[in-house]
């Protein structure tokens, strides 16, 4: 790994949550524990716990993986690459009706605590009334489930939904909205703001995160929604799952125009047009254009407003190193 450390912004201590140990760090960096610990303590702020050793902020570790491997083969790198592979598929496949069986499974470590009453775990349900999202009829849902069995029941607050998601090709016409959107894409592409992992504490202070020079999909979507509303437009930030190899937490902004909500996805646009190095995805100009108004058939929004976290533990955002597992099974739409 490169020894360079200037390519991302560390989480300021006042917002950091130092609770990721070297084992989790090693998994994210794709290195043995000892090597990962040495690399992380060299390049990241940390606190030392007498029992667990050095503890890091999860976002810092993810960024170390993203910015310093130069291999494109760390888990965060690969997740981006695989989940956005659809951008290279024919354009019609972005919008055509697609069936999805989605299972959201809490990790056993959290589920056990929830079930013995030592912690309260909550997961935002899917927004089945979202534009383009339609629950499957019972026979179709049953057929989809039968073809993709589970070894054990999915326990609440985990859930399973079978939906048809239909995309829509559209563009944002409002000049103010397009200007604000492009301004933020340019800030990311030009490096004034670094697209990187941001922890939940700073996501909640998205304006401050942007001023610090860092943004992820949540920060960008919340800030764009703010700016659109400040300009007198109707906008909202959404958060849900990007479906593909797995379901991945993702956020985007939506503008209400022409009597419907049009997604404006700064993260996709940046990664497709301005992402650098191993994080750049191969995408056509048509895909970049589609990020400003079109709705893709693989985004399942949650019900939480303002792109708030999808999973809470005792009223706080759940630890990111214990993510819910989200399986996404495509089916043949009829």
């Amino acid at each position: 790994m490169s020894a360079t450390t200037s390519t991302f912004i560390r989480v300021p201590a006042s917002y950091a949550r130092y609770d990721v140990d070297t084992t989790v760090t090693a998994g994210l960096l794709g290195l043995p524990d000892g090597e990962a610990g040495e690399l992380a303590t060299t390049h990241l702020p940390y606190v030392r716990d007498p029992g667990r050793g050095p503890l890091f902020d999860h976002a810092d570790v993810v960024n170390l993986a993203l910015f310093h491997s130069n291999t494109g083969c760390t888990v965060p790198d690969l997740a981006l690459r695989f989940l956005l592979r659809f951008a290279t598929a024919p354009q019609s496949t972005w919008y055509e009706p697609r069936w999805w069986l989605v299972r959201v499974c809490p990790p056993p470590a959290l589920l056990d605590r929830a079930r013995d009453g030592s912690a309260q775990l909550s997961i935002e349900p899917a927004d089945l009334a979202a534009p383009g999202v339609v629950p499957l009829d019972a026979p179709d849902a049953a057929a989809l489930r039968q073809a993709r069995p589970t070894a054990k029941a999915i326990l609440p607050p985990g859930y399973e939904v079978a939906v048809r998601i239909t995309g829509a090709e559209a563009t944002v016409h409002d000049g103010r909205a397009r200007g604000l959107y492009q301004e933020m894409v340019d800030a990311l592409a030009g490096g004034a703001v670094t697209y990187q992992s941001v922890n939940e504490g700073l996501r909640a202070r998205h304006r401050e995160a942007w001023q610090l020079g860092m943004a992820d999909c949540v920060v960008a979507s919340r800030l764009l929604a703010d700016r659109l509303r400040d300009a007198g437009l109707t906008a909202r930030a959404r958060r849900g799952y990007l479906l593909g190899l797995v379901g991945s937490d993702h956020a985007w902004c939506e503008l209400y125009e022409d009597d419907h909500w049009k997604p404006m996805d700064l993260a996709f646009a940046f990664l497709a047009s301005g992402g650098s190095g191993t994080r750049r995805i191969n995408a056509t100009p048509e895909f970049v254009a589609a990020c400003c108004g079109s709705r893709f058939n693989r985004l399942l929004p949650g019900q939480a407003p303002d792109a708030l976290p999808l999973v809470h533990l005792d009223g706080e955002p759940a630890p990111p190193w214990l993510p819910v597992a989200v399986s996404a099974h495509p089916g043949e739409a009829r």
Binding site: V75, A79, F82, P107, P149, T150, P323, V326
Partner: peptide
């Protein structure tokens, strides 16, 4: 035929399998 993720295979592991 069982759903790997629902059976406990995490997203990082699925990503490594895909690679």
């Amino acid at each position: 035929d069982v759903d790997l993720v629902a059976a406990g295979v995490n997203s990082g592991e699925m990503i490594r399998v895909a690679l």
